[in-house]
Structures are given as C-alpha cells and as structure tokens.
Design a protein around this nucleic acid. Sequence first.
DNA 1: ATAAGGCCGCATGCGGTAGT
DNA 2: ACTACCGCATGCGGCCTTAT
Length: 529
Amino acid sequence: MEYRSDGTIACVKEEETAPPSPKAALSFKQWKKFVLRILSQKSSGSLAKVKRKALEKAADKCLKRGAGRPLNGELELQWEHFLSSKIAAKLLVVDGKQVHLKASLGHDAGGIPAAETGTGGSVAGDAASRQRSKKRKQRSEEPSSGGAPAGAASPSKRAPKHPAQPRGADADGAASAPSPRTEEGGESGGLGAAGRPAANSVPADVMVLTATEPGEEDVIVLPEELQLPWGKDAKRTDVKHGPFSEAEKNIIRRALKWFANENGLPVDDLRWLFEERRSTKARGFWKFAARALPHRRITAVHLAGTRMLYPERKRTPFTKEEDEQLRTLVPKYGSQWVRIGKELGRYSGDCADRYRHLVSSETNNKGKWTDEEEQRLKTLVEEYLTEFGVKVVNDTTFLDGINWVRIAERHGTRNRIQCLEKWYDSTRGKSSVAYTPAISDELLVERVAAQVDAGAMYEYEVEWDSLVERMDAAKVKKRWRLLLHRLSGAQLMELPDKIVQLQRRFGTRTREQQERLQEDGGPPVAEPA
DNA sequence: ATAAGGCCGCATGCGGTAGT
DNA sequence: ACTACCGCATGCGGCCTTAT
C-alpha cells in the first residue's frame, strides 16, 4: 500500500515478508546526522532530494550494521517519523511551499509563519494544517475530518497550549504554535521553531529547499511487518506517549482513506466505523491504522482516532438543556455512555466527562481557600504520601502517585481539580502554605541528564522504569512533570534544554558540560524566571 | 487567584469472534 | 469446547484555556 501526500492511497504488493530487523531501526539522532551531512554539501535543492539521499545513507547504514537490506518502505516510514519529530522541527522551518533546512543547530531559529500551501510534501502540508488550526471558539465550525483530503483538513482540535509563549498578533491563528503539551510529546508535529517568537528572515545558514520537485510524489510505503497484535502491544517498550502530532493524525486519516477505498466504504459517512459495532466491514481498521504508527499502542491509536473521526462530534459547551438531559439519563442508563451519547447526540466520552464535572462541582466550596482548607489539604496529601506515595531513595523523598479523588473525598469541601491545582500551585510557590518540597530534584535531574548524555532526545526515550529504584515509570514521570512546572517556558524546550535549565536551578553540572549541551543542539539558555 | 469545563491519553477489563 | 485475539467502553488522572 502506498500513502501519497495528496491523500490518495494506492496498493502495491509487498516484495517479501522477512521479519524486520531491529538493526534496521535508526535513531532520530542518526537521521539528523544524515540530514546535516547532506545539507553541508549543498546550498539548495528539494526536500525530496534530501529524503532520497538520506534514505540511501540509511540503507548503507543498515547494511553496515548487518541488518541486511531494509524492508520495502521501512526507511521511508522512519523518514516520515523523523520529519514529524521535534528534532526535525529544529531543522525545518516552513514558509509557504518552501522548506528551509537549517544547516546547524547552534542557535535559535527565527520563526517563520507558515503560509497556505497546496499539495506540497507532507511536511509543508502539516504546517499548513497547523496554521489553519483555529482558536477554541472556532472549533465547532470545523468539518468532521472524515471526507476531507488527508493533509488538507487537519484541524488541530485544541488551541495552542502555551500560556507562557510569546506570540505575535495572531488574530487569524497565523504562526499557530505546535502543541507539545508537555515534555512527553516527543513528536509535536514538528516545527517547534515556527512557534517561537517571530524573527522575520531566514537565518544566513539556512538552506532553502522546495518541499517537493515538480512531478515528484512523496510516497510512503508501509511494511506489513509493523503490525502488532492488539493485546500484546502493551508489552512493547519503544512506545511513544503524549499528544498525537498532526503528522500522526494525518497518518490515521490517510489510513482511513485507504481502508475505505479498499473496502468500498464511504469516507464522508463513517457510520460503518462507529455505529456498526465490530462489523466485518470495519474489522481490522484500527489495527491497520496503528501499523502505520509503530511507536504508538493500538489502543492509543484507536482512542485518538475515534475522538478525531467521530462523526460530527460537537465541540461546543454543553447547554443547560443537555445538562438536564444528562441528569435524567444517567439514573436511567447508569454508565452506558454510548447509549446516553446517542440520545444526546454527543460523543460518549464527552458525556461521561461532562457528567463527572457536573457531579464534582456540586459538592465543593468555591472562592478563596481558607487557611484551614489549605492546611487540611497539606495534611491530607502528606498523610497520603506517607501511606502510599512516598518512596525513599537515598534519603530523598519523591512525591506523586496521588489519588486526587480520594484526597478530595477526605478533604470534604474541595473537588479533585481544586485540590490538584492547589497542590501544583503550591509547588510553584503560589500558595500561602509552604508544602514539603521535593528534595530529590537534583538527583532526578542528574539521572535524566545522564540519559540525555547517552543519547536520549525525548522524554519517551528516557528509561523511566529503571531511573529510580522501587519507583515505577509513571510515578517518576509525574515527578518529572512536577519539576518542570517550576520551570517557566518548559513546554517550549527540548529535553536537553530542559536539562540545562534544571541544572542551573537544581543541579551540579559544570559550566563546561552545560556549554557542550548547548552546542549540541539547544537554543540559548534564558535566565530562569 | 479561582472556577469551570473541554478535551486528551492511558490502563483495564469485558464481550464477541476467529482459530484450533 | 477451548483459547487467543480483537475491538471497544469505561474510569480515571490530568492539562490547558477562558471567564470571573
């Protein structure tokens, strides 16, 4: 099967079915090397040319590693993933139909607002999609993506999430930032540079390329072997977590289109996918789509895709009438949210979420927290941590793994969100009550830094599981997130940059080490807030 | 500072289905 | 009949934005 950047998909025969070799999997770092080397040789060209050369180099590398000849399409897929990664975003700045590849990473990129593009390469298409992402209020006007050409209609359903991000006048959503919601979004859909404060020209060492050459098609061939059993992929270790990038969403859209074509199903009416449960028509679709996203779990693809493709999913606030209906329907149907959703004309998950909020807001105090309430929260959290969450490692205490529903129940006057937000604020020094600080910050930073030194470029490449003894990955990551809360602008930073910043505040890394890190790819380090 | 609430991503478990 | 797998719904924790 072939996915083309214009959204059309054709079927080709797989040449062979040999099992994929792990040796054929090249790291983003490796791809980056290829690209930089190619860029150093020329001053202009097309993205397709760069791709072709990079693929050649990659194939060579595979042979040298003893991985044999890569499977048909395997490297193209890796290339696509590389392009959608943050590391590629550092290399790429999209400007209309042109793609500028930065030849070095020694400085921060000037942001160049993406302009409308036609059916250029996938990268330009993604940027254009992002550019079209509208503010929250406008979302309801967006069409359901079912029948839209892949890469053309890719509404970023969520508004940009960077409160700290300086942005120019963006009444029209121009230069809309990508959405790396947290450190966990390894691939943001790219173009982190494009979301930065605008500089108006292309830096001198930027290479100007066209997205594609006339007549060239950006064809991605997906290997059959990337398929994973639904139930077993939970055992995978190289899984990407966090927000789906636009590139990933586009892959799902393209997969949908292919699947529909192949099976004679409509793309403008997706009832076959959502209403005919387990129908033979739709059988295998999600598995198929997930195959194109080998770093994602099938269940994650399924959920993200469902929410993205759900026909006419309303993205407007629940009306009072709908709330009343919910209150009537829930006693009647219990938690049969699909049924409730059908009656309300809403997506089931939205109904469940809405009801949850309705209920939780009924029983809590509002307004300013009293000192007594804050103190009570502090006591409860500390008790909770003593009972469940505290792990002692080298005389350091880690907080997290807090069940906020439970805390809220015990607290009595505040709901889970209020408690959670209050606690997080306290860690940012916004509370009148001083909570126990985590004294393990330095150790945590140093351990993550060690992984960065060892080649990890993203949070999802960090081996969280083994990072802290007797502490599972989820809790360590939560701890990490808490730490980042205290770092202003962390959302806009790459992992190495975060390390530099964190070490400035908490760590012991030498100046020389910091400089080396920066030279290695980070933007200039700003003074901590 | 706080409330409100939309929406996301993940884990889990269950019922249906295909394979033996 | 038994088993493994598929597809999905649900519950939950949490992020982020907007309004007050």
